[in-house]
Design a protein around this nucleic acid. Structure first.
Length: 229
DNA sequence: GACCAGGCACATC
DNA sequence: GATGTGCATGGT
């Protein structure tokens, strides 16, 4: 499984190149994006983040000071704006309470402990917690999302539909514990699925499908051709 | 107009 | 423990 996963990673990296995730100028922006992107297309999140920047709100003190209703109005384009405003406030209050309001200080806490803390925040589930750990705090945790689950199922790496924990342990058990590897691998899987596996539950045109042993396709944009042997 | 998008909490059975 | 539902905007 280790060599199979690394082989898939190498092919994806060669085909698509590094994805340079997570898109964000600071750990706070990454964490905010992780909450805003819950069940939401990234394009809508970008609009909400642009609104936050314009309002000067990508700042721990400002986020703590602003009232929830005003915050909701700013992040409206991201959808579910009332619940997400509440979740952002819960997160900011947590950082203030447990880590002195300094996001970077969270890195000093052991990963497992930090993950438990994050999961204790209302509105932070496994994916959001792991996204914050990996992409905002550089902790070696593999992020699982709907794309990852779909990928594992459609490519025969897991029978049936994997749970979050099953999917995560599959990667973390077989791959070297490496923040950079986990970062790129997840980002590449998202890119693959967004490009070729748009329909759920099956990605019928996905070029990495197990039953298509060899195939080439013309890359689009900056993507190169890829061998699927 | 229907469906989907980088979830999560809560109610119900 | 498993399943259903509410949360809401914007693109296709």
């Amino acid at each position: 499984m280790r060599s199979r996963l690394l082989n898939i990673f190498d092919r994806l990296l060669h085909a698509f190149g590094p994805r340079y995730w997570w898109p964000g100028d600071s750990p706070l922006e990454v964490a905010v994006g992780a909450i805003l992107t819950q069940n939401t297309a990234w394009g809508n999140v970008e609009k909400a983040i642009a609104n936050l920047k314009e309002a000067g709100m990508l700042d721990m003190d400002k986020l703590r000071a602003i009232d929830q209703v005003s915050l909701a109005d700013i992040i409206r384009p991201a959808g579910f704006f009332r619940v997400k405003a509440k979740r952002l406030k819960s997160f900011v209050e947590f950082v203030e309470r447990e880590h002195g309001g300094v996001l970077e200080r969270m890195k000093e806490t052991q990963t497992g402990t930090l993950r438990s803390q994050l999961l204790g925040i209302n509105g932070i589930g496994p994916e959001t917690a792991d996204s914050i750990l990996l992409y905002a705090l550089d902790k070696p945790v593999f992020v699982v999302d709907a794309y990852t689950i779909r990928f594992l199922k459609n490519h025969g790496l897991h029978e049936g539909t994997a749970t979050y924990e099953e999917a995560q342990s599959l990667f973390m058990k077989h791959l070297p514990v490496d923040t950079h590897l986990f970062n790129e691998f997840h980002a590449l899987l998202v890119h693959l699925c967004q490009k070729f596996c748009k329909t759920k539950p099956l990605c019928s045109n996905c070029p990495l499908q197990a039953d298509k042993r060899t195939r080439r396709w013309k890359g689009q944009g900056n993507d190169r051709d890829i061998d699927v042997a």
